[in-house]
Amino acid sequence: MKFTDYCLRSEGAEVVLATSSDEKFPPENIIDGRSDTFWATTGMFPQEFIISLNKCVTINKLTIQCYLVQTLRIEKSMSKEPVDFELCIQKELQSTEGELQIEEFSFPEMQASYLRFIILSAFDAFVSVHRVIADVIA
């Protein structure tokens, strides 16, 4: 079995919405495939971003690499536009004291063309999101 990560710019993914933007740490860093680059929020919560996949895909596992995120909500949409989102999961994350938080979420064949990540609360005034990985069996 071959796994493909559809949350990569090279696979046609785009960040179509982000509630904050810093030119040094833009939202596009989430989909560049690197853990050493990131999107930084500009304070105040909730914060969110939406990733557009280049087609409707079946996702088996989502992984997010982030820092200082406390409460995370993930939603999906199968629409042609980023509307009609449905809750996938909401979770309280553990603080990792200076380390990246790496959270994996398994789904029994979840279909999505858009993924919305809502950071409801944080352990500090700012958070960073380094990568989102969507494992899709090709």
Rank of each mutant, 00 (worst) to 15 (best):
T58K: 11
S79P: 03
Q111S: 14
S95F: 13
Y114R: 01
A13C: 07
P82A: 01
E92N: 14
Q111C: 03
F123E: 01
A18M: 12
F123D: 03
I74H: 11
F126H: 07
A40Q: 13
A40V: 01
T63F: 10
T71C: 13
P26M: 02
S106E: 13
S121V: 01
E11I: 00
I89E: 15
K61A: 00
P82S: 04
F49H: 02
F123W: 14
V83Y: 09
D22Y: 07
V16E: 15
S128F: 01
I64V: 14
E103C: 03
A13G: 09
L120D: 14
A122H: 04
D84P: 05
A112I: 08
G98D: 01
L8T: 00
P27Q: 07
K24S: 14
C56W: 00
A138E: 15
I50G: 03
K91D: 10
F117E: 11
I59L: 01
A122S: 14
A134E: 03
L100H: 13
M44F: 13
F107L: 07
F126Y: 13
V127I: 10
V69S: 06
G43I: 02
T42P: 02
S21I: 02
W39R: 03
E86D: 10
E81N: 13
K80S: 13
S77G: 11
V57A: 04
S77H: 03
I50T: 14
E92A: 08
M110F: 05
K2F: 10
P46Q: 10
V132G: 06
K80F: 05
K2N: 13
Q90G: 12
S52K: 15
V132R: 07
T41P: 04
P108G: 09
L72H: 04
S10L: 06
G12R: 02
S121N: 14
D5T: 04
N29M: 06
L17G: 02
G33R: 01
M110D: 07
F3I: 11
I31R: 05
F107I: 00
E75K: 10
E23T: 07
C88G: 04
V57W: 00
S10R: 09
F85C: 02
E109S: 10
T96W: 09
V127C: 15
K55T: 06
L100S: 10
K24R: 13
T19W: 10
F123I: 08
L100Q: 06
P46L: 02
A13Q: 05
F3S: 12
S20V: 04
T4F: 06
D36L: 06
D5N: 15
I133C: 12
